[in-house]
């Protein structure tokens, strides 16, 4: 009981403090000539603002600072300049393999995920009886906790008694190959992770695409039918442009989440010979070895990669994303 009590008390005090801050903000703003509704609105968002400053803005800047220091949680951070980055880029044997496997994983899973879930959504968009049951089944992998997913797939990929090798071994035998030791063999780690991620494409992404497909105006298809357009042409000239904003969203969200793979990798426990994912490296450097400076440097490299890739995708959007408003103009 006592392990809950202290936390519960503090959990009750925090909203009181946040409310006090909100009221104080309200009166301060009103005194500075804000209208009542303006001050109310700003006061209402202060809980987020407080959290943002303490838990996002400050840590973001502080981790950048830490990446230029030596720090082991004890004592004070010692400024070392670019030493951590130079070490990572030139000496650290784990860094480049980690960047490589993380980027490769994202580069393989994002396109497969987006195209795969779009195809599945097109299939589920068919008007046939009992489609509701299929939609429910297709959403199931998305609700399974990551921990269960990881353990389940580790077992499916088991080299001696896994179900996957049971189905694959007759085919592999034709080519004179043995059973692959998926997560245990550096050559197979990446394919194994990619196959595992394909199972997850059913689910959230599919549901979003499905809703997008149902939002495409029926009249467009009716006109195309009158002109005798083929299904392929209808997809190319109506469906694809109409849902292109959703594709953009899926690419960006998929990129961000796949570059941050962590929990699954921790539970699958693949051989580290092919490299650890960047988030694993951050965790290990920071919390196992207590090299907070180095860990922060890896974190910032990951952050810059995500930022750069996101900007790159955004810059490409005028070429292929279609916005309704541009035509209405």
């Amino acid at each position: 009981m006592e392990r809950y009590l202290g936390t519960f008390e503090r959990w009750l005090i925090v909203p009181v403090i946040l409310t006090a801050i909100a009221f104080a903000t309200y009166y301060l703003l009103k005194r500075h000539g804000w209208k009542q509704r303006q001050a109310t609105g700003f006061a209402l968002i202060t809980p987020w603002l407080v959290g943002f400053i303490i838990f996002t803005a400050f840590p973001l800047i502080y981790s950048l600072y830490l990446s230029f220091t030596d720090y082991s949680l004890f004592g004070k951070p010692k400024w070392v300049g670019l030493k951590n980055y130079i070490w990572l880029f030139t000496k650290d044997v784990e860094f480049w393999p980690s960047v490589k496997i993380t980027l490769l994983y994202a580069a393989l899973t994002v396109p497969i995920g987006v195209i795969g879930s779009l195809l599945v959504a097109l299939l589920l968009n068919k008007k046939v009886k009992g489609i509701g049951v299929f939609r429910t089944i297709y959403y199931l992998p998305a609700v399974l906790p990551e921990v269960a997913v990881a353990l389940l797939w580790r077992w499916l990929f088991n080299s001696d008694s896994g179900l996957l090798n049971y189905f694959l071994s007759p085919i592999l035998k034709l080519f004179g190959l043995g059973k692959p030791n998926w997560f245990g063999d550096p050559k197979f780690v990446l394919p194994a992770f990619v196959i595992m991620s394909v199972w997850g494409i059913f689910g959230t992404n599919t549901v979003v695409f499905l809703a997008g497909l149902q939002g495409v105006p029926k009249s467009l298809y009716e006109v195309a039918d009158l002109d005798g357009a083929s299904s392929y042409k209808k997809f190319k000239y109506i469906t694809a442009p109409q849902i292109s904003p959703i594709i953009l969203l899926q690419i960006i969200m998929g990129m961000i989440s796949s570059l941050q793979i962590f929990t699954v990798a921790m539970f699958v426990r693949p051989t580290t010979a092919a490299g650890k994912f960047m988030n694993q490296l951050i965790y290990e450097r920071g919390f196992t070895q207590l090299h907070m400076g180095e860990a922060s440097a890896v974190a910032w490299v990951l952050f810059v990669i995500i930022l750069a890739l996101t900007l790159l995708v955004f810059r490409s959007t005028p070429a292929w994303v279609y916005y309704e408003a541009e035509v209405k103009r």
Partner: peptide, 26 residues
Amino acid sequence: MMLPFHVTLIPTFIIWKKLGLVGTFD
């Protein structure tokens, strides 16, 4: 939403450590 959680993880951990609350549910 785009910020990797791990970037803020270490400083956030330091905050909780300074508050003496690491090891609790806080």
